[in-house]
């Protein structure tokens, strides 16, 4: 596990991914400071959570906004990168067969790869609000949080932010599992990562088609913005707990497939 972590941490894609995702809130902060004349209000287009217009209220507000801005796509793309290329890139380099000639059962190897992929994904998910908090506090100061529902004291909001980040991390698991499953089936790292991202987009489009009715409720992204209700006082959990459960069947299917496939696969590359 440590070895696998070292292996991944030394890779450029890991460094670029993590630095890139951490840089996004900083860039956003600069953009907000430079365009200080517009406070972001002006139509609610593209602001489904209502957090963008409140971004400059405090550092914590900015951290929340950064999270809301990156969670629907950018974070998912980075997670797909970390989990989707971990096995397939080894296969494309030919180093997978050497890993498999080590005295380590395939299941254990897969477990390490998955654990490290998830750990890196978690780091990415946590980096965004942390970077947003630092950048936002420098740019807009420390203070209570203006939420769409009212005002939260900073200490409370910090705790809620922690829960929100945990929720986002958990509800991204389906994608991590999907990308990982794809990763075990292909020798093309780009194929696994890009395939996962395309599927994310497809699922998000499906979720936006109201004509699909109740089917949408079973899409893994359907409750992905439910964390907004954690900002209410008191926080509401109904959609959250559904969002948490919703991940389970997808995890079981995707990871079950990954293990089943990889343990019987003939490694020919």
């Amino acid at each position: 596990m440590i070895v696998e972590l070292l292996r991944q941490l030394r890779r450029r894609r890991t460094k670029v991914g993590l630095i890139g995702i951490a840089a996004v809130p900083v860039l956003l902060a600069v953009a907000f400071v430079l365009s200080s004349d517009g406070d972001g209000r002006g139509g609610n287009g593209g602001d489904p959570t209502g957090l963008f217009s409140l971004a400059t209220a405090s550092g914590l507000n900015f951290a929340l906004m950064s999270t809301a801005a990156t969670a629907p796509f950018l974070l998912l793309a980075v997670i797909a990168l970390f989990t989707g290329d971990t096995v397939s890139s080894e296969a494309s380099w030919g180093s997978l067969r050497y890993l498999l000639t080590r005295p380590v059962p395939r299941g254990a190897l897969l477990g390490r790869k998955l654990a490290v992929g998830l750990l890196l994904s978690l780091i990415a998910v946590v980096l965004v609000p942390v970077s947003g908090l630092i950048a936002g506090t420098i740019a807009f100061g420390w203070g209570d949080v203006q939420t769409p529902f009212g005002v939260l004291p900073a200490a409370t909001a910090l705790g809620r932010l922690g829960v929100i980040v945990s929720y986002i991390a958990w509800t991204s698991l389906w994608l991590a599992a999907l990308a990982f499953a794809l990763s075990t089936t292909t020798d093309s790292a780009v194929g696994a990562v890009a395939g996962s991202i395309v599927l994310v987009i497809v699922v998000q489009i499906l979720d936006a088609i109201t004509a699909l009715g109740d089917i949408r409720r079973w899409l893994p992204v359907h409750e992905s913005t439910a964390w907004v209700s954690l900002l209410a006082t008191p926080p509401r959990y109904a959609d959250l707990s559904r969002g948490i459960w919703l991940q389970v069947p997808y995890l079981v299917v995707f990871l079950g497939f990954a293990w089943w496939w990889f343990s019987r696969r003939d490694v020919l590359s």
Binding site: R11, G94, R97, R102, V104, P105, A108
Partner: peptide
């Protein structure tokens, strides 16, 4: 696959493969 006895086996198969 992955048997512990592989500790005592060194292999070069189908060319080199490195990161």
């Amino acid at each position: 696959s992955g048997h512990p006895v592989l500790h005592h086996v060194g292999a070069l198969v189908e060319g080199p493969g490195f990161s």
